[in-house]
Write a protein that binds this DNA or RNA. Structure first.
Length: 745
DNA sequence: CGTAAAACTTTTTTT
DNA sequence: AAGTTTTACG
C-alpha cells in the first residue's frame, strides 16, 4: 500500500515520469494538484532527489501555500526546502541576490499599477505627450505587452517601421524604463523580464540556478507569457526535467500576455516531450460537467477533448432571469440563505462569480441587509487605499530613497506647506543635476528661489533622516508606529470624527497587524525580516491569497479570481449578452476574444461541485444608465435537458417541452427562457418588470397633467413613484395605477 | 497654498 | 454612479 495507489492510471503515469520534458493536459477537476504534489513526493521519497533541487511554480501565492502544505503532508519535513512559489516571487528572490549585475541596487522597489500610472503620467507631461490622445492606461498596457514579449524600446521602434504612433509609445517606453532605473524600481513585468535579462547576460548566474533546479514544474501553464516561457526554458535547458501542467480550455489571461501557443506548441519546442492527458473529473456532477463540455465545444481553437466523471448525475443546472440586477441579487442571496437554513449547505460552500468587479456591489448590499456573512475578493486593493499608500510610501522612502514617486507623494502629507510650485522647483533641480528627488531635497539650500519653503523642506529631510537611522534597529512595526505617531496621521483622522476617517483608522490598524504577522511568518520560516521584504510581500499579494478553507462566509469574486478553486454551490451571476460575454468581445473583429470569454465561462461552470445556478437580468444600471440585456449566448449553449428554469413543474412542464423540442433557433430559445422565477409569480399581474420612465423623466398623468419624476421606490407589490406635477404639486402614486406616460423632449 | 465645487471620464479581467 | 481631475476663489 503506497500513497500512489489512490491515483488513476494516467495520474500515476504523470507522477512516475520524472525525467525529460512532460506535458500534462489536465482538464478541470482532474486532480492535477494531486499529481503535482505526489510527483514531488515521489521525486524525494523514491528517486532520492534532494528537495533543494526542485522548483514548483504556481499561479497564485494561495496555490503555492496549498501545494506546500500538501507536499509537506505527503513527504514530511524533507520537503521543506522545495521551492514552491509564483513566477513573481521566485524572480524577486533571484533578483534580490543578483540584480546588481544589471546596474540596480538589491533593495529595489516594486511598482504597482498606481505607481506605474503616475510615472507614465509624469513622463507624458515631460515628453509633451497628450494623455487625451495616448491614454496612460493604453500606454501602460502596450508597454506591458511589449515586456511580456521581451521587446525592448529599440525593438519596438524598429518593428514599428516608422509608424508615428509606435514611435511615440516607444519613446514613452524608453523613458519609462530609464525612470524606473533611476528610481531603483521594477514593475511587475520587469520582475520576469529582468530575470531573463540576468540569465541571458550572466552565464555563471544562469548556470548556478540551472544546477540548483534540476526538476522544474509549472502549474497553469496555459497562462504563461512569452517572457515566462523563456525564463523556464533557460532554467530547464540543462537537465530538461521540465513538467508543465495546463489546460488550453482554461486559458483566460491573454489580456495579460498569456501565450496559448506555449501549451499548444510545447511538443514542437520539446520534440522528445511526453504528453499525458487527464480527462477524468473528480469534482463535478455529470450534469454540470456536461453543461461545461457543451459550452466549450463551441470553441474552435482547442485540442479536442471531453471530460467524463463517475460522479452522480446530480441536479440540473438552475437558470433564472430577473427584471433587473436588484432582483437578481435578492434571489441569489435569498437562495443561499434558504439553502443554509434548510441545512443543505454552509455559507462557506457558496461562491458567487461574475464577470466584472463592479457587479459585487448589489450582492454586498443584499448580504448586509440579510445579515449574511460574506467576503468580496478583489476590487480595490487594500494596499491601494489612500491612507495605506501614504504610510507605505514613508516606508518605501526609508527603504529606498531613490524612489522619487514615494518621496514626492509624502513630502506634503500631512500638510507641511510644501506646494506644487516648490515640488516642481526641486524636481527641476534634481533633473538638472542628475540626482534623485530626495537628494535634491537634502541639498535644498543650493536650489534657487525656494524662499520660505526652504525651512519646511529641511525639516522634512531631517525627519526622513531620523527615520532612516531608527530603521536600523527598529522592527517594521515599530518603524510604522513611529511614522504614524510623528506625522500625527491617526491623530488628524481622529479629529475629523467621520465614519470615513474611522474606517481609515481601522485600515491603518490592519496594516500594523500585517507587519506583525509578516514578522511572525518570517521568523517561523527562519528567514530574515527586512523592510524590503515586507514591502515586496505587499506588492505581490493578491486578495485571493488570504482566502482560507473552512471559513464560513459566502465568497464573491470575479471568474478570473475563481480559477483553481472549487465550491459545492456556485452561482454565475450576470449571464447577459453584453455583460458576459462582455460587449467588447461581442463587437470585437477578432473571434478569439469571444473564445476567451467562452473559456472563462467554462472555468466558471467547472468550479461547481454539486449545485450550479446561472442568473441574468433584463435590465441593469450600468454607469448610471439603464441598459437592456438578452440572455447570455453561453446559457443558450447549454442543452435544454440539463437546465431547470424554476417553473412549477406540474402545469408548465409539458408546454415548456413543446416549445423547446420544436427547434433550437435563437428566437425560440428566448421564449423558453423568458419565465420569471417562482417567487415573483403572485405579483406578476400588478408589478411591471420594469418602467419605461425613470427619475428625471417628464411624464403625463391622465388627471394631474405633466410632471417630472422625482423618485422611484421599489415596493413589494409595485413601484411607488414620486412625481412633481407642474400644476398639481408633488404626488406619490403606484405605477400600476397611475399609468404614467413618458413624454419625449 | 488650500479647499470646494464643477467638469470630465470611465468599458472588463490581475501578478 | 463613482471616481478623478480641473478650475475658481478665499
Amino acid at each position: 500500500m503506497s500513497i500512489y495507489d489512490s491515483l488513476n492510471e494516467q495520474q500515476r503515469e504523470a507522477v512516475f515520469n520524472t525525467e525529460g520534458p512532460l506535458l500534462i493536459l489536465a482538464g478541470a477537476g482532474s486532480g492535477k494538484t494531486r499529481v503535482l504534489t505526489h510527483r514531488i513526493a515521489y521525486l524525494i521519497e523514491e528517486k532520492k532527489v534532494n528537495p533543494w533541487n526542485i522548483l514548483a511554480i504556481t499561479f497564485t501565492n494561495k496555490a503555492a501555500q496549498e501545494m506546500r502544505e500538501r507536499v509537506d503532508r505527503l513527504a514530511g519535513g524533507d520537503a521543506g526546502s522545495v521551492w514552491v512559489s509564483t513566477f513573481h516571487s521566485a524572480c524577486v528572490r533571484i533578483l534580490r541576490r543578483h540584480i546588481d549585475r544589471l546596474g540596480f541596487e538589491n533593495n529595489f522597489t516594486i511598482y504597482d499599477t498606481d505607481d506605474q500610472k503616475s510615472l507614465i503620467k509624469d513622463i507624458c507631461t515631460r515628453l509633451n505627450v497628450d494623455t487625451r490622445v495616448y491614454k496612460e492606461k493604453a500606454l501602460m498596457s502596450q508597454i506591458s505587452r511589449a515586456k511580456d514579449e521581451l521587446i525592448t524600446p529599440d525593438q519596438m521602434e524598429t518593428n514599428g517601421a516608422g509608424d508615428y504612433n509606435v514611435r511615440k509609445v516607444a519613446a514613452v517606453y524608453r523613458e519609462y524604463q530609464a525612470q524606473l532605473c533611476r528610481n531603483n524600481a521594477l514593475d511587475f513585468d520587469d520582475l520576469i523580464g529582468k530575470t531573463v535579462e540576468l540569465f541571458q547576460n550572466c552565464g555563471d548566474v544562469l548556470e548556478s540556478w540551472q544546477h540548483r533546479f534540476r526538476y522544474i514544474m509549472v502549474d497553469e501553464y496555459q497562462d504563461t507569457n512569452t517572457a515566462q516561457f523563456r525564463l523556464v526554458s533557460l532554467l530547464a535547458s540543462r537537465y530538461e526535467n521540465l513538467c508543465v501542467v495546463g489546460d488550453d480550455d482554461q486559458s483566460i489571461y491573454s489580456f495579460r500576455g498569456a501565450n496559448i501557443g506555449n501549451i499548444l506548441g510545447f511538443e514542437r519546442v520539446f520534440p522528445n516531450a511526453r504528453v499525458i492527458r487527464l480527462e477524468q473529473n473528480y469534482r463535478s456532477t455529470q450534469n454540470i460537467l456536461n453543461a461545461a463540455n457543451e459550452v466549450i465545444s463551441n470553441n474552435t481553437e482547442r485540442k479536442p477533448k471531453r471530460l467524463w466523471t463517475e460522479n452522480e448525475e446530480g441536479s440540473r443546472v438552475q437558470f433564472r432571469q430577473f427584471a433587473n440586477g436588484f432582483e437578481e441579487a435578492e434571489y441569489v442571496v435569498g437562495d443561499i440563505a434558504a439553502a443554509r437554513r434548510e441545512g443543505r449547505c454552509r455559507y462557506g460552500d457558496c461562491a458567487v462569480l461574475y464577470r466584472t468587479n463592479a457587479q459585487s456591489r448589489l450582492f454586498e448590499e443584499k448580504c448586509l441587509l440579510a445579515n449574511i456573512p460574506y467576503r468580496i475578493i478583489g476590487g480595490v486593493n487594500f494596499y491601494a487605499r489612500k491612507e495605506i499608500k501614504d504610510l507605505l510610501c514613508y516606508l518605501k522612502t526609508v527603504d529606498n530613497a531613490r524612489d522619487d514617486l514615494a518621496v514626492r507623494r509624502i513630502i506634503n502629507v500631512p500638510k507641511r506647506g510644501i506646494g506644487a510650485a516648490t515640488i516642481a522647483k526641486i524636481q527641476d533641480y534634481a533633473e538638472l543635476m542628475n540626482i534623485s528627488f530626495y537628494d535634491a531635497v537634502r541639498v535644498a539650500e543650493e536650489i534657487p528661489s525656494l524662499g520660505r519653503s526652504l525651512g519646511k523642506i529641511n525639516q522634512f529631510a531631517e525627519f526622513i533622516q531620523m527615520l532612516r537611522s531608527k530603521a536600523e534597529h527598529y522592527s517594521v512595526r515599530e518603524l510604522l508606529e513611529e511614522i504614524i505617531d510623528l506625522t500625527g496621521y491617526v491623530t488628524e483622522l481622529k479629529a475629523e470624527d467621520t465614519d470615513e476617517a474611522r474606517s481609515r483608522i481601522e485600515n491603518i490598524d490592519e496594516l500594523i497587524s500585517k507587519t506583525v504577522s509578516y514578522q511572525e511568518a518570517m521568523e517561523e520560516m527562519g528567514r530574515q525580516v527586512t523592510l524590503s521584504g515586507f514591502l515586496e510581500e505587499i506588492a505581490l499579494v493578491a486578495d485571493i491569497d488570504s482566502v482560507e478553507d473552512g471559513q464560513d462566509y459566502v465568497l464573491f469574486m470575479t471568474l478570473h479570481s475563481a480559477k483553481g478553486l472549487e465550491f459545492p454551490r456556485v452561482y454565475l451571476a450576470g449571464m447577459d449578452d453584453g455583460i458576459f460575454p462582455g460587449s467588447l468581445s461581442i463587437f470585437s473583429d477578432n473571434p478569439s476574444d469571444m473564445e476567451e470569454e467562452r473559456r472563462l465561462c467554462y472555468v466558471g461552470i467547472t468550479r461547481a461541485e454539486k449545485e450550479l445556478t446561472l442568473t441574468s437580468a433584463r435590465q441593469r444600471l450600468v454607469r448610471g444608465e439603464n441598459r437592456f440585456y438578452k440572455v447570455s449566448r453561453f446559457v443558450e449553449e447549454i442543452p435544454r435537458e440539463l437546465v431547470d428554469l424554476g417553473r412549477k413543474i406540474t402545469e408548465k412542464k409539458p408546454k415548456l417541452e413543446n416549445v423547446i423540442s420544436a427547434k433550437s433557433s435563437y428566437g425560440q430559445m428566448k421564449i423558453s427562457f423568458r419565465p420569471t422565477p417562482l417567487e415573483k409569480k403572485d405579483f406578476k399581474v400588478t408589478k411591471a418588470d420594469s418602467l419605461d420612465y425613470g427619475v428625471g423623466d417628464t411624464v403625463r398623468h391622465v388627471k394631474f397633467g405633466v410632471g417630472v419624476v422625482k423618485n422611484i421606490v421599489e415596493g413589494g407589490r409595485d413601484y411607488e413613484v414620486t412625481v412633481e406635477f407642474d400644476r398639481a404639486g408633488v404626488k406619490k402614486m403606484f405605477a400600476g395605477f397611475a399609468k404614467l406616460k413618458k413624454i419625449q423632449d
